[in-house]
Amino acid sequence: MDGKMQRLIIICGATGSGKTTIQNYLASKYGFERVITHTTRAPRKGEEDKKDYYFESEESFLKNHFVEQVKYAGFQYGSSHEGLKRAFEKSKTATIILDTQGAISYTKIVAAFEMIFWYIEVPSEKQLEMRILNRGQSEEEVKKRLASVEARRDMKIPQNLEPFCEIIENALWKDTKRKIDKLLEFGRDN
Rank of each mutant, 00 (worst) to 15 (best):
residue 9 I to E: 07
residue 13 G to E: 04
residue 54 Y to M: 08
residue 14 A to I: 05
residue 42 A to H: 03
residue 72 Y to H: 02
residue 89 E to G: 08
residue 57 S to M: 08
residue 46 G to P: 00
residue 60 S to D: 07
residue 37 T to C: 06
residue 16 G to V: 03
residue 44 R to A: 12
residue 46 G to I: 08
residue 23 Q to K: 05
residue 77 Y to H: 10
residue 47 E to L: 10
residue 45 K to D: 06
residue 27 A to R: 09
residue 65 H to I: 07
residue 40 T to R: 01
residue 33 E to R: 09
residue 60 S to Y: 04
residue 61 F to A: 08
residue 22 I to A: 09
residue 71 K to T: 06
residue 71 K to D: 09
residue 84 L to S: 04
residue 6 Q to L: 15
residue 74 G to V: 08
residue 80 S to H: 02
residue 22 I to H: 01
residue 8 L to T: 03
residue 34 R to N: 14
residue 9 I to F: 10
residue 9 I to R: 04
residue 23 Q to M: 15
residue 39 T to W: 00
residue 27 A to W: 00
residue 10 I to F: 00
residue 92 K to R: 14
residue 56 E to P: 02
residue 82 E to H: 07
residue 66 F to V: 08
residue 75 F to S: 14
residue 20 T to Q: 12
residue 31 G to F: 10
residue 28 S to G: 06
residue 90 K to Q: 13
residue 55 F to V: 07
residue 10 I to V: 13
residue 74 G to F: 06
residue 81 H to C: 11
residue 48 E to H: 10
residue 71 K to L: 14
residue 44 R to C: 09
residue 88 F to D: 04
residue 51 K to W: 06
residue 42 A to M: 05
residue 24 N to K: 05
residue 84 L to F: 10
residue 60 S to N: 08
residue 39 T to C: 07
residue 46 G to M: 07
residue 36 I to N: 00
residue 80 S to T: 14
residue 33 E to C: 15
residue 45 K to E: 11
residue 63 K to C: 14
residue 58 E to S: 12
residue 24 N to V: 10
residue 49 D to V: 11
residue 70 V to M: 04
residue 46 G to R: 01
residue 51 K to T: 12
residue 62 L to D: 03
residue 10 I to D: 04
residue 78 G to F: 07
residue 23 Q to L: 13
residue 83 G to P: 11
residue 63 K to D: 11
residue 18 G to N: 05
residue 44 R to N: 10
residue 31 G to R: 08
residue 9 I to V: 15
residue 69 Q to C: 13
residue 4 K to M: 13
residue 6 Q to N: 12
residue 37 T to G: 08
residue 36 I to D: 02
residue 48 E to K: 13
residue 46 G to W: 03
residue 14 A to M: 08
residue 50 K to L: 15
residue 22 I to F: 05
residue 63 K to F: 07
residue 23 Q to T: 15
residue 70 V to Q: 09
residue 64 N to A: 13
residue 52 D to A: 06
residue 85 K to M: 12
residue 51 K to Y: 08
residue 35 V to K: 02
residue 78 G to D: 07
residue 54 Y to C: 13
residue 29 K to L: 09
residue 40 T to M: 03
residue 70 V to Y: 05
residue 13 G to N: 01
residue 83 G to H: 00
residue 50 K to H: 14
residue 45 K to A: 11
